[in-house]
């Protein structure tokens, strides 16, 4: 399937860029319960870039993230994470995170668990460890609530703590599942700016899944657009085009630009699947 390949071919440009490649998916196919969730998905992510994983609900975004995390083995295809210890090269911020307000875990405790939460035994406290956690919290703008129980923080604040939790072990790849879904406009904008800054300054690959791409358009370097289990990948202006997305969906869609915003809608006079409109603006949820 040619659409599984990026419309342009920037991935095989060799040289310095190849060494920066932190994740590569080659022909990843996932069947679950007799249904094909992902169909021959191939793309790679490079250090320092922010990538949007865009698709409507049920397009396979979470499945794709689970495959990258190693929580789900693909039916076919290969996932390669660069680095000597792939499992711990990937930081992850799950979707819709709402913690029990009585949980006796402060923001700094959760970040400390990001250093060595998978190790057995009790952590030995040290000044160095404490300072490392404090620096990390400050870096994501969460220093103010370092000593508050995580469950008592707002959604946006909890998200910052989780980003710190994911970043403190120096991953090469940071995955976030729908991080903007439950945020108000201002918090969403702040989160996007923070993630873009993290990608540039720390030279890691950041991938953000979203059902709505507009909040990401100003900052994302590349798009992985998922539809019908297939993926198109490349710079936003090369992927979010009527011809590319129509091939991806298997029927005609139109891309409407309204000022800064982009809407993907089912094409008019589309007789391929008239009963199956694709409506991808912000009212999706």
């Amino acid at each position: 399937m040619e659409l599984a390949q990026p419309p342009t071919a920037p991935l095989s440009d060799g040289g310095a860029a190849t060494t920066d490649r932190v994740l590569q998916l080659a022909g990843v196919t996932v069947d679950l319960g007799g249904r094909r969730i992902l169909d021959d998905v191939s793309f790679s992510l490079r250090a320092g870039e922010l990538t949007g994983l865009i698709g409507s609900n049920g397009a396979g975004k979470t499945t794709l993230l689970r495959v990258i995390l190693g929580l789900l083995a693909p039916t076919r295809g290969a996932v390669t994470v660069a680095g000597p210890d792939p499992r711990h090269s990937v930081g992850y911020v799950p979707q819709k995170f709402m913690l029990d307000p009585d949980l006796p875990v402060r923001a700094r405790d959760l970040v400390a668990l990001g250093i060595d939460g998978h190790h057995l035994g009790v952590a030995r406290p040290s000044r160095e460890r404490r300072e490392r956690v404090t620096r990390m919290l400050d870096a994501v703008g969460a220093g103010r609530f370092a000593d508050t129980r995580v469950g008592r923080l707002s959604g946006g604040e909890q998200q910052r703590v989780l980003i710190a939790h994911a970043l403190i072990s120096h991953p090469r790849l940071l995955l976030l599942d729908e991080p903007l879904a439950n945020l108000d406009l201002r918090s969403a904008r702040e989160a996007v700016d923070l993630l873009a800054r993290i990608a540039r300054e720390q030279r890691i690959a950041v991938m953000i899944s979203a059902h709505e791409m507009n909040a990401l358009l100003p900052v994302m370097d590349r798009v992985v657009y998922l539809a019908e289990g297939r993926a198109a990948c490349g710079p936003a202006d090369e992927v979010v085009r009527a011809d590319v997305l129509s091939r991806l969906y298997g029927h005609r869609v139109e891309v409407i630009r309204a000022g800064e915003r982009v809407l993907v809608v089912a094409g008019e006079g589309d007789d391929a699947e008239p009963s199956h409109p694709h409506h991808h603006d912000s009212e999706e949820r």
Binding site: G70, L71, R87, H88, V90, Y92, P94, G117, H118
Partner: peptide, 8 residues
């Protein structure tokens, strides 16, 4: 979920 992602 967080624990599983860390390989626990």
């Amino acid at each position: 979920e967080l624990a599983a992602a860390r390989g626990v």
